[in-house]
């Protein structure tokens, strides 16, 4: 959790219970996106812990960012980050979001994500397995 969000006991309690997630693809190859969806489907089923993908950043507690952050996606990433109610958790999902991965050095890349917005948890992997994603979320919640 970045320093500019001071956590009160109340917000800590509110954030810990059933965190809702918003997923933003900023130039990924789809792999991380489908593995994130996979974590919601019957095999892993994180919905039983109250974790839910929501359609609007204004409802979200967790922001999952995948991809290298392309020039065209940058304004949207900042816009979405500003829309999320603070305090929020930002999770960089996949190697591309963490470091740029194989696309590092592309002329259309501005990222990685932590250059643009503060990131709380990095989940590396190309793509990370659903187990890794769940473990990352658990670590993020443990930070609160």
């Amino acid at each position: 959790m970045s320093d500019n969000h001071k956590l009160t006991d109340m917000s800590r309690w509110g954030l810990k219970k059933s965190p809702w997630a918003f997923h933003l693809s900023t130039g990924s190859c789809n792999n991380c996106d489908i593995e994130l969806l996979d974590a919601l489907t019957p095999r892993f089923d994180v919905e039983r812990f109250g974790i839910l993908l929501v359609g609007s950043p204004r409802h979200a507690d967790i922001l999952f960012v995948t991809g290298i952050v392309t020039v065209q996606a940058l304004p949207r990433l900042i816009h979405v980050y500003n829309q999320i109610a603070k305090p929020c958790l930002v999770i960089a999902l996949g190697t591309c979001a963490c470091t740029g991965g194989i696309f590092d050095g592309s002329y259309h890349q501005i990222g990685p994500v932590d250059k643009i917005i503060p990131v709380d948890v990095y989940i590396p992997g190309c793509p990370p397995k659903p187990e890794a994603i769940i473990s990352g979320v658990v670590k993020a919640l443990a930070k609160i």
Binding site: S25, C29, H108
Partner: peptide
């Protein structure tokens, strides 16, 4: 398009 353009 081109939000995902990575210059592959």
């Amino acid at each position: 398009t081109s939000w995902n353009h990575r210059g592959i």
